[in-house]
Design a protein around this nucleic acid. Structure first.
Lengths: 188, 188
DNA sequence: CATACTATCTTTACACTGTCAAGATATAGA
DNA sequence: TCTATATCTTGACAGTGTAAAGATAGTATG
């Protein structure tokens, strides 16, 4: 199969066009027909390369994940110890998605909630469950007598929330809830 | 405006029907027309109560969040210290979504990725970035000389991943990246 | 070279979606 | 009783994913 068939390499072109649309217009604006039109091809042409819309989406995610993995790999290359590598991965992880925020929602979903994850009291009313955790966390800080600066308070809060959230995700999807030792969640 | 107008209380009925559809058929199967049909009402009737499909979705999320908050509140009621409350909230958080897994994806998005968050080597090939973290984490365990049981290994891994993931979400959505002290991510 | 074969792409069609506009209907208030 | 308003129905439209049938162009086989 040649490289300059009817279109050239439509499969790859569709993947790249889809990713470009997501970055420029957001995921909810992505449709098979629009991707096909971007490649100047009929609306049913993608079905020669992908069984589904889902299969194109999966191919797009694979492509993004390759870039993501490459960046992580680059980050740990120069780190000495494993602990350093973990920290470097954390930085690279966040850096990657900060430069391409649409990739984050594309890979992980909506996630709008986390915008409320700050300790300031302005967005207090936004997300009730998190408001509750904030209040309890302030109480915890008071009890433990620690006078942390605001930035560190935020980090502590995020650590708790994201740990629990990640565990809930794991437990929901895999059902391994009972194997988790909850005492491990404790602060510090 | 009476309580037994044409339909009774269509607004509430639509919200409940929508939630039921999500629990029984999944979110991707939810459509305005199907919700309307479930309430035995014409396909345009919801527009008397909701401007958008999005507005109905938001109302449904509010309803679920109310249940969620109530369960968290119940959990912390009997806890003595703030630290105990945080742990109780963590347990209640996970318990809530374990009993209604579709609520989790409904509120937080896809999240299928986290199914790979186990330390067993079977799903190793699933998600390359996470595979990388797993390898580095094993290396870290070896370096630190700790012989943790598998369950605790998983918890450590989840703590790191979910912390970084949660911080990436925060940084992407709010742009507060620079205020975070990364040294805090360290293990323990 | 001629033929058959296969991958690729187009055209047409269908059911389904969200949304809007115009009209019907029933309740509330004057 | 009359009017106004909220609620609901009907009908329409553009856009969606997808399947079927046909056209086209490359590849392989004789």
């Amino acid at each position: 199969m040649s490289d300059t068939y009817h279109h050239g390499n439509l499969r790859q072109a569709l993947i790249e066009a889809g990713i470009r649309i997501i970055n420029e217009q957001g995921e909810e604006q992505l449709s098979l027909r629009k991707v096909a039109a971007t490649c100047e091809v009929s609306h049913a042409a993608p079905y020669a390369h992908f069984k589904d819309k889902e299969e194109l989406l999966a191919a797009m995610q694979n492509s993004v994940n390759e870039q993501f993995t490459a960046q992580l790999q680059r980050a740990i290359a120069s780190a000495a110890s494993a602990e350093q590598k973990i920290l470097a991965m954390g930085r690279a992880y966040i850096s990657f998605f900060c430069h391409k925020p649409d990739y984050f929602t594309f890979l992980f979903g909506k996630q709008k909630l986390v915008a409320h994850l700050t300790m300031d009291e302005e967005h207090e009313e936004d997300y009730p469950p998190f408001k509750l955790l904030k209040a309890v966390f302030r109480q915890y800080l008071a009890e433990s007598g620690a006078a942390l600066p605001p930035a560190e308070q935020e980090v502590g809060l995020i650590k708790i929330w994201s740990s629990v959230h990640g565990m809930a995700a794991l437990a929901c999807m895999t059902g391994v809830e009972t194997t988790i030792d909850w005492e491990q969640i404790k602060l510090q």
